[in-house]
Design a protein around this nucleic acid. Structure first.
Lengths: 139, 139
DNA sequence: CTGTGTGCAAACACTTTGCAGGTGT
DNA sequence: ACACCTGCAAAGTGTTTGCACACAG
């Protein structure tokens, strides 16, 4: 069976280069969101910083990845299981663990509707829950 | 009557310098949150970049200001009406207008409790609502 | 007077961009 | 063959730090 990363690139009409496949694979094997720095460390000496920036931007534009701020408001990226082909469903929460600093999608939780004051038009909601994940909580 | 900025500095046991007072006043007369860049522009030629960074950091530590990410996940700062003396009540939403890019506290809205999966310990919730404010919505 | 804050400049970190050569289709 | 991607280096932008002097208490 073909590699899932390659399928994704195909689906989104992006050229299939070694670097893109490797980067996508990194996301696919991690449940947690990754920052540019995470990737830079993982691919140190093998993929150039600039290339990582360009890939991330392109994946964002294409809609393969989405952005999540971590507890320092640093940008992390994640493939979103619920999103397909530009149809994003991002009204779910993200959990940021203050112990291991991992950021994960909590697909189960849908952000409750927010009763905004009159006159406001809401287009997107971002909910970040901070605390400790089961692993760090028991440690 | 004494200046509110001066009262604040006093309350938090911070030295009352010209620069701090000016920066605090900027926050007090703006309903919207301010970024470092906003302040740098406002005080161009009068307060040094580095000083602004140091003041913001100190105000954060002291608990006078809190941080909110805007739509680019850039940090903005705001005095929080509901917070007093280190007792923060940040479980309210922030609204980020995609038209004028202003970020404001919506004190009226309390973030609903989130039913997290078992094992997670929640310590803070950040809710950012994006859309258009009444002013930009009608324009 | 003492300790802290400020401005300036340099250092540092993060991100973007131009260009020449390499790669996917 | 062509268009696009990559690596490298340089430029751009945002943030921090060291130091000498100024200021608040």
């Amino acid at each position: 069976m073909e590699n899932q990363a390659e399928i994704l690139l195909n689906d989104f009409n992006l050229r299939q280069t070694n670097q893109r496949v490797k980067i996508l694979q990194a996301f696919l094997r991690n449940s947690a969101a990754l920052s540019h720095t995470d990737l830079e460390e993982e691919f140190a000496g093998s993929i150039d910083r600039a290339t990582i920036y360009r890939c991330l931007k392109q994946f964002l534009d294409a809609g393969i990845l989405h952005r999540i701020p971590d507890e320092q408001f640093q940008t992390k990226y994640a493939v979103c299981a619920a999103c397909d082909h530009g149809h994003h469903h991002h009204d779910h929460a993200h959990f940021n663990c203050l112990g291991c600093n991992e950021t994960t999608c909590i697909e189960q939780i849908v952000i409750p509707s927010i009763p905004m004051p009159a006159g406001f038009k809401v287009s997107e909601k971002i909910l970040i829950v901070q605390g400790y994940c089961p692993r760090c909580n028991n440690a």
